[in-house]
Simulated scan of single mutants.
Amino acid sequence: MHREDEPASVSAALAQQIRQDIAAAGGWWPFDRFMAAALYMPGLGYYAHGGVKFGWSPESGSDFVTAPEISPLFGHTVAVQVAQVLDATGLAEVVEFGAGTGALAQQLLEALGDRCARYTIVELSASLRQRQQQRLAAFGERVRWVDALPEGIEGVVVGNEVLDAMPVQLLHWDGTQWLERGVAVDEWKFVFADRPTELRPPVEGPFVPGTVTEIHPQARAFIATLAEKLQRGAAFFIDYGFPEAEYYHPQRHGGTLMCHRAHQADTDPLSDVGLKDITAHVDFTGIALAGQDAGLDVLGYTSQGHFLMNCGLAERLAQAGVRERTMAQKLMQEHEMGELFKVIGFGRGLPEGFDPIGFVHGDRSHRL
C-alpha cells in the first residue's frame, strides 16, 4: 500500500469500527463518545495514527499550527512564569499534558536550564510521543513520558491547546425543551440525532430556538483530577475560549464546535472521521469553578497577549530579528492569537503573597 493511501484506509477502518460500536449501543451515541473515538481510538483516531498534525502550511501535510511552532519566543516567554513558580517554591519539575510536536517542551527546557531537573510529558498518542522523543533526545534523562498524570505532582503543570480537544456534549434547544445531540447511522453515513435530556447549560439563557451549544464535563473532570494530584505548585492552561457569559451568549447560537484539516476550518465533525481535528472553545468559567471546587486557588485569567507581555515578550522582541519579530507579533496581536487565546492559572501551597508575573496587568478573573 502506498503511504499516501494510509490516512484514507485508517479513516475507513475507524468509521467501520464506530458504526459497529454505535449499533452495539442500540443505534445512538452521545456526541462526546463519538468525538473521543474520532480523536483517540487506539491506532485509528486522529491523534492516535501517524499522520502529520502540526505545521505551517497544507504542503507539509499538516492541519493547523500552534503557538510554539509560530515562534520559539512563545515558550521562552512562558518559561518566565514557570521559573517564577519554581524559584518561589524550590521545586524543579515541569509536567506538560499533551506536548504535540515537543516544541513547547524544547523551548521551556532551553529557557529553564538547570531550574528544571525533570520534565514529565503526559502523552496518550504513541505517534506524537515518538516525534517528541526524537526532538528532545538532546535533553536525555531529564525528560520522561507517562500515560497518565503522576499520582503526586510538586512543580508546574502546563498545557497548550489541551482543553479544547477534550470531548464535549452537545445540547440543542428546540424552543420548548433541551435535547442532547448524539450520533446515529443512516445508510452508512453518520447523522446527528437528538434525544430529550436532563442536561442543561450552566446559565439560564435566554436561548434562541435552534441553538446548539456545548457543555464540558470531561474538561472539568480533568481539572478536578489534576487538583487531586497537584500537591504543591501551579498549573497554567493556554487555549481559545471565553467566560460563560460570552460562551452562552444568545448570539452564539451555533456553538463553537469546529474541525481543522489542511489549515481549513469546517463545522462537520461527522465527515472524514479520523482525518481532521475536532475542537470546541473552552468555557473558562467552568474550568475556574472546577479548580476552585477541588481546592485550587485561581491565580489569574487573562488574554495570551497580556500574559506574554507581562512575562517580557516586548523586551525579547526588541532584541530579535525582523522575521522573528514579525512571527512573534502573531502571538500578541488581537486579530491573531493575542485576544482569542486566554491563559488561566491555578495554584496550591504557594508562598503567602505570591503574585504571578503573568497576571500582573490585565487580569480578568473578575469576568469569570
Rank of each mutant, 00 (worst) to 15 (best):
A126R: 11
P68R: 02
G349K: 12
Y119F: 15
G321C: 12
H49L: 10
F341Q: 04
Q134L: 12
T285F: 12
D194L: 08
L226T: 04
F236C: 01
D266M: 02
A224V: 05
G43P: 12
L296V: 08
F54Q: 09
A23Y: 02
E187T: 13
Q81A: 15
G205K: 04
E180Y: 03
V273T: 14
G349Q: 02
A138L: 09
Q84V: 06
Q231D: 13
L124H: 11
G45R: 14
D355E: 09
P72K: 01
E141D: 14
G102C: 04
I223P: 02
R364A: 08
G286I: 09
A265G: 12
S303D: 15
G347C: 06
Q319P: 01
H335E: 13
G321P: 07
P167N: 03
V191K: 02
G241Q: 06
L112R: 03
A126I: 02
H216I: 01
I223L: 11
V282I: 14
T326Q: 08
Y119S: 04
P202Y: 05
D147T: 14
A111L: 06
A83V: 11
A314G: 01
T120E: 00
L257C: 08
V298Q: 08
A320C: 03
S127C: 13
D266C: 13
L112K: 06
T225R: 13
M1N: 12
Q169T: 10
G300N: 10
P72E: 04
T267E: 07
G51R: 12
E187A: 15
D239W: 02
D87Q: 13
T279W: 06
V82G: 15
V185A: 05
L317G: 00
A83W: 03
G358Y: 04
H76T: 00
F236D: 00
L179T: 07
G255R: 08
L128A: 15
D5I: 10
I18N: 02
Y248I: 11
T267D: 05
T213A: 08
A67K: 00
L340G: 00
E246R: 14
Q231P: 04
L136T: 08
V282T: 03
D355T: 15
P196Q: 15
T211L: 04
A92G: 13
G205M: 00
R200H: 04
V298I: 13
P58G: 10
E336I: 00
G353P: 07
A12G: 03
V298T: 14
G100A: 03
D239Y: 10
A165V: 11
E214H: 08
D239S: 03
G90R: 06
K330A: 09
R129H: 08
A38W: 10
Q169W: 01
E141I: 02
L91D: 14
E228L: 08
L44M: 10
A48I: 06
V273A: 15
R33A: 14
Q20C: 14
E228M: 05
P250S: 12
I287H: 08
L112T: 07
G61L: 06
G26C: 12
Q251F: 11
L230K: 04
H253G: 01
P209H: 10
E154Y: 05
Y47H: 10
F192C: 06
S9L: 14
R131W: 00
G205A: 02
P58T: 05
A148Y: 14
P42T: 09
